[in-house]
């Protein structure tokens, strides 16, 4: 029944590349962009190669001694030595496992409390000074206390990670639930929506984007929490190997541990990004060099 209009969808289906202004051939602009992205990628690889080469040959050239910055090849050799003799795989697995469990539990706790506070302004007002105090308290300072409570095992370090991961996720979820357009909630109410439906169909999905920014931060914080936990107590994990390496003035082992800890962090971060891509697939794509395809 509505008459035909001059409106066009913001993105036409299978839209060809828009010609750049002044360039009649749209394909050229896109090819150029692709070329420049390929060039950027090549540059990144070159930077990496230069860095690794400098690591290998720089320290001796500059007269830096082996126990300050060991050469790359020695660190690699140490890595394989530790793999065979130092149960490196076992320690790496313990740390990875703790990071994943600590991150998961911290995220879950942050979400649950974030949604509960978000749905009840009263509770938030009552709880906010305590939340603020706990947020300001340096969570890693709890590590010794937790070890005194739970002993030299995997529990205290996971709890440190939980504490430290918890806050950014709580705050993001809480802010997101608070920020939902009241008109949106009124719309649902006009259809006689229950409180549960409002949460499940509006507030929860609306909080997904901020939740994932919180999770990204949490993923990196979890590694910090576990590492500190392993510094303080226990005889397993990469943090323990790191401290042990330090005690023996084995700089190579310290480097190996730092690199592996970083890799664990990168893997955790990438897992979050993958999940985010899937959950937020409805969002406008944000790609490098993708300009103005969306309103």
């Amino acid at each position: 029944m509505p008459s035909d209009t001059t409106e066009t969808p913001a993105t036409a289906p299978s839209q060809p590349a828009k010609p750049a202004q002044g360039a009649p051939d749209g394909g050229v602009g896109q090819t150029l962009r692709r070329l420049s992205m390929a060039r950027e990628f090549h540059l990144s690889v070159i930077v990496l190669i230069v860095f690794l080469a400098f690591w290998e040959w720089g320290p001796p050239l500059l007269g830096i001694r082996e126990f300050i910055i060991p050469r790359l090849s020695n660190v690699v050799t140490e890595f394989f030595f530790m793999l065979e003799n130092g149960r490196l795989l076992h320690h790496t697995w313990i740390t990875t496992y703790s990071v994943l469990v600590g991150f998961f539990l911290g995220a879950l706790l942050g979400m649950v409390i974030g949604y509960l506070l978000g749905m009840s302004p009263m509770t938030e007002i009552v709880a906010s000074p305590y939340i603020l105090a706990l947020q300001i308290a340096p969570k890693v300072a709890f590590a010794p206390l937790l070890i005194m409570w739970f002993g030299y095992n995997i529990t205290p370090k996971i709890l440190v990670a939980v504490l430290i991961v918890f806050f950014p996720i709580l705050i993001n979820v809480l802010t997101a639930v608070r920020g939902v357009d009241p008109a949106m909630i009124n719309l649902a109410r006009s259809f006689n929506a229950s409180r549960w439906q409002i949460f499940w169909k509006i507030e929860f999905p609306a909080s997904m984007a901020p939740l994932f920014s919180g999770l990204r931060i949490g993923a990196t914080l979890a590694v910090i929490g576990i590492t500190v936990g392993e510094f303080v107590g226990g005889n397993t994990g990469l943090g323990y190997l790191l401290i042990e390496g330090e005690g023996q003035a084995n700089t190579k082992a310290v480097f190996v541990a730092i690199i592996l800890l970083t890799l664990i962090g990168i893997i955790a971060y990438c897992l979050v990004i993958l999940m985010e891509r899937w959950v937020l697939r409805y969002m406008p794509k944000r790609k490098f060099g993708d300009v103005g395809n969306h309103p």
């Binding site: 357009d181 509006i202 969002m283």
Partner: peptide
């Protein structure tokens, strides 16, 4: 709120995570 009355505002209030079809079905779903 009752089913005899429905409103429409200046803002479209479409839920960004739902397709257009799912948005149209929103009220019926509730």
């Amino acid at each position: 709120p009752n089913e005899h009355v429905a409103f429409m505002l200046q803002k479209d209030l479409l839920l960004p995570w739902r397709t257009i079809r799912k948005n149209v079905e929103f009220g019926q779903e509730i």
